[in-house]
């Protein structure tokens, strides 16, 4: 564990609390993409099957359980109690293409041919693009509530710190994971536009609104 990874994981955790706070505080999931949230649930379930096969640390297991449980809970909140507030008409990104694309990549470039590694690779590829329905929705509506943009920023910052973690691990441990690196780089690049708008607008106390 290093400082980049620890802060990254904590930011990931924080992003989920921010999202739950937004839903609870505004009593609405307006502007939140259910497709992105459902994709994250699929990502966590397919990646963390090693909970049953390998023990790393209490920290590792607790975080995995939290990510699976919280993503399931968010999907439930949006699906059932907050359904009337869900902006379905702007959440129109074709998420099925992302799932099919990630599945094909997972089969073409798996970490190994073990079923767990194929699913792990699929989840890495899927996570890289899972934010797209959310970003697409924000582009379509042209703006987002400030707290929703904090959520996306925390997620993007978590990814950016993972890149620094990999550079650090490469030099200190010789650690290499090409699949995670390439997918992680793609994932971080997807946030580039968002970061720019967030830093120039939201940080100055304005809404996330497209120029």
């Amino acid at each position: 564990m290093n400082i980049f990874r620890l802060v990254a994981d904590l930011l990931h955790l924080a992003s989920i609390f921010i999202l739950l706070l937004k839903i609870q505080q505004t009593k609405s999931c307006a502007g939140v993409s259910l497709k992105t949230q459902a994709l994250y649930f699929v990502v966590f379930v397919t990646r963390y099957l090693d909970l049953f096969t390998h023990f790393y640390s209490v920290y590792n297991s607790l975080m995995k359980l939290f990510f699976i449980a919280s993503s399931a809970y968010i999907v439930y909140l949006m699906w059932k109690p907050y359904r009337p507030t869900y902006s379905a008409s702007t959440d129109t990104f074709r998420a099925e293409f992302l799932i099919v694309g990630a599945a094909l990549l997972g089969l073409a470039f798996p970490d190994s041919w073990h079923i767990l590694d194929i699913l792990w690779s699929f989840s890495i590829y899927l996570e890289a693009v899972a934010i797209l329905p959310q970003l697409f929705q924000m582009t379509r509506t042209g703006e987002a509530e400030t707290i929703t943009s904090h959520y996306v920023f925390a997620l993007g910052a978590y990814r950016a710190l993972y890149l620094m973690n990999w550079i650090y691990r490469y030099y200190t441990e010789g650690y290499m994971d090409v699949i995670a690196w390439v997918a992680g780089a793609v994932q971080t690049i997807l946030y580039a536009d968002f970061f720019y708008i967030y830093l120039t607008r939201v940080m100055r106390g304005r809404l996330f609104s497209l120029p």
């Binding site: 990874r5 096969t53 970490d111 190994s112």
Partner: peptide, 10 residues
């Protein structure tokens, strides 16, 4: 028998 790789990151 083949074992899955170890992935220590979240």
């Amino acid at each position: 028998e083949q074992r899955p790789h170890i992935h220590d990151e979240l």
